[in-house]
Computed example of a mutant assay.
Amino acid sequence: MELKEIFKIIIILGNITLALNTFLFFKDYRKKTVAFKIIAFYLLYVLIIQLRMSYLSSLHLNNLHYTHFYFIGQLVLLSFFFILEFKNKLLSNIIKIYLFIASLSLGLCYFLFPELINKHNMFEVVITSIPLTIYSFIFLVRRIDSDNKKFIYLNSGLFVYITCSTLIFVAGSFKSDIKIFIWFFNASLYLIYQILVFVDWYKNFRKLN
């Protein structure tokens, strides 16, 4: 089996796991905390984007513009999640201020340079992803010795995936024969991330009878 075929299988498995996680997080949605509900909407949001991108890719159509929705939406939703979970006024205010500045910066960026909508925007990747790795790291440090282990698996996967994928997005500068290995690694990390999301639900949120 060629690497490209394995790559496609991993992408499909990642999407299936994401769809399963979305279903599980919405199953008992009304009985959960606001932070849990934000994660549920985040999973649904990402699922819609992933399915749309996969559909366009199957038709050999450009789907690059959907990555902008992914990065910006991810920053917004996860920022609100961390604000709720940190329960720290200083940290919450820092996240809110940064979210406003980042949103304003990206808005101006695409207003002044609309041609970037159909291109990889490294500025966008950096200002939307690096803060999330920092928030996730702070979350893990604060919760690792705590009795409350909710979302710790999810954040572990998030931290590793976003940290690595941020670096991987420089793949545009690599030769085409190397790109497939880079994107294969990225897809594998995403599958692992979604598996950890499932582990978090199973260990911390599933309804026990």
Score class of each variant (00 low, 15 high):
137 F>D: 04
74 Q>K: 14
67 T>D: 09
193 Y>W: 08
200 D>W: 07
84 L>S: 04
30 R>F: 14
90 L>F: 14
144 I>G: 07
101 I>E: 03
54 S>L: 09
59 L>M: 14
144 I>K: 11
36 F>P: 05
140 L>P: 01
151 F>W: 02
46 V>L: 09
40 A>E: 00
155 N>V: 07
146 S>N: 10
139 F>S: 02
84 L>D: 13
28 D>N: 13
67 T>F: 15
195 I>F: 08
202 Y>R: 10
3 L>Y: 06
193 Y>V: 00
46 V>W: 09
6 I>R: 11
53 M>Y: 07
44 L>R: 09
170 V>E: 11
16 I>F: 15
189 L>S: 00
192 I>S: 01
166 T>P: 12
147 D>S: 12
181 F>M: 05
192 I>D: 00
198 F>N: 11
12 I>F: 15
105 S>T: 08
169 F>V: 00
167 L>R: 09
78 L>N: 04
193 Y>F: 15
138 I>T: 02
96 K>W: 01
171 A>D: 08
78 L>G: 02
107 G>T: 03
36 F>S: 05
133 T>F: 09
126 V>H: 09
182 I>K: 04
147 D>Y: 07
188 S>E: 00
102 A>K: 03
115 E>V: 10
21 N>D: 15
107 G>A: 06
19 A>V: 06
197 V>I: 12
89 K>A: 10
93 N>R: 14
71 F>C: 06
194 Q>N: 13
179 K>D: 00
132 L>K: 08
205 F>T: 03
109 C>Q: 13
163 T>P: 10
77 L>A: 01
135 Y>M: 04
105 S>L: 13
